[in-house]
């Protein structure tokens, strides 16, 4: 690569010097071209991602009317609020439980799809990925209707077995369960697809060798599949952890954080405080609490992705 680049420069220099102006040469230089090609990207990231991120730290240090600097005042205020600690606990329970179940279900389903003859896999995979394709706001509306306490399907079905009626979204424990269920429904297909791709990349010889050594199916998963898929499992899980932790749509539409803020997570609480109660600095402080966990996950993802890049 480097050789060609040098050659390109030399050719351009030799012929161009006579024919074209120096401005033309500058425009033909690789670094200039590269700069202009990446300029829109750099501007976008700087103005609409980096700047708001820093601005949010600034906002978090102001008082409600945004005229006085209060330092860590918003944070100490939040630390004293019981609701805030509930949000922290809620977000962690929600994200960890949902990610574990998504990963497990995704792994199991990927195995089943991998197990069946290759001819039919496409069809099954196509149907199983549908939850991931529907915009979450739309599918959550369908769940909201399925959870409806009096007229709808779940309680009707349960009543046939003499159970219920369950107050799916009105009772705090059931509401948490419902939110996690919807999130698992939405996110498991993503894991399934990633694992399926990873499963297909495990060389068959390894399984043959394991079978010759007398390994049963469990040993094959434990000693062959899992080590081979370790990297993709790590990346997918961490990625999903970020997305789930920062989730907004599902909780907002299902419960809006209710009953009594008992299902509120960071994103919905920040929305409630910052936009609905128009205390922008406090809302910014709430969402900034997501940064540490997101940063840790991001660092690990980056490490794994780079490792993966070097392997390939």
């Amino acid at each position: 690569m480097a050789d060609v680049v040098v050659e390109h420069g030399r050719v351009a220099g030799a012929t161009g010097a006579r024919k074209r102006t120096s401005l033309h040469n500058a425009l033909k230089r690789k670094s200039t071209v590269a700069f202009f090609l990446t300029l829109p990207l750099i501007l976008l990231i700087a103005l609409l991602v980096l700047y708001p991120a820093l601005f949010s730290i600034h906002l978090a240090t102001l008082n409600k009317s945004m005229q006085k600097f209060v330092g860590f005042g918003n944070f100490t205020f939040l630390f004293k609020r019981e609701t805030f600690w509930m949000v922290v606990k809620q977000s962690c329970i929600f994200a960890i439980t949902a990610v574990i179940f998504k990963a497990l279900i995704g792994f199991i389903v990927a195995h089943f799809v991998h197990n069946i003859p290759a001819k039919g896999q496409r069809k099954w995979r196509g149907m199983l990925l549908v939850p991931w394709v529907i915009p979450p706001a739309m599918s959550t509306l369908a769940w909201l209707w399925l959870f409806d306490p009096s007229y709808s399907a779940f309680n009707y079905t349960l009543s046939l077995f003499g159970i219920g009626p369950v107050n799916w979204l009105g009772d705090a424990a059931w509401a948490r369960f419902s939110i996690i269920l919807v999130n698992v429904w939405y996110g498991a297909p993503f894991f399934m697809i990633m694992y399926l791709a990873a499963l297909k990349s495990v060389p068959d010889q390894l399984y043959e060798a394991a079978a010759i050594d007398g390994a049963n199916w469990w040993q094959r998963i434990w000693y062959v599949t899992l080590p081979m898929m370790r990297n993709i499992i790590a990346i997918t899980t961490l990625f999903s952890l970020i997305v789930t932790f920062a989730n907004f749509d599902i909780v907002r539409i299902l419960t809006s954080g209710g009953p009594l803020d008992q299902t509120q997570i960071f994103a919905t609480y920040a929305f409630r405080v910052g936009i609905e109660s128009s205390d922008i600095p406090l809302g910014a402080s709430v969402s900034l609490f997501m940064v540490p966990i997101l940063a840790v996950a991001a660092i690990f993802i980056l490490r794994d992705v780079n490792k993966r890049g070097n392997e390939a």
């Binding site: 990231i45 708001p52 991120a53 949010s56 809302g283 910014a284 969402s287 900034l288 997101l294 991001a298």
Partner: peptide, 16 residues
């Protein structure tokens, strides 16, 4: 940047 979620930036963007 791809890993930064929308729920982190909506408040500063709104104010911006």
């Amino acid at each position: 940047t791809y890993l930064i979620p929308d729920s982190l930036l909506f408040i500063p963007l709104f104010k911006m």
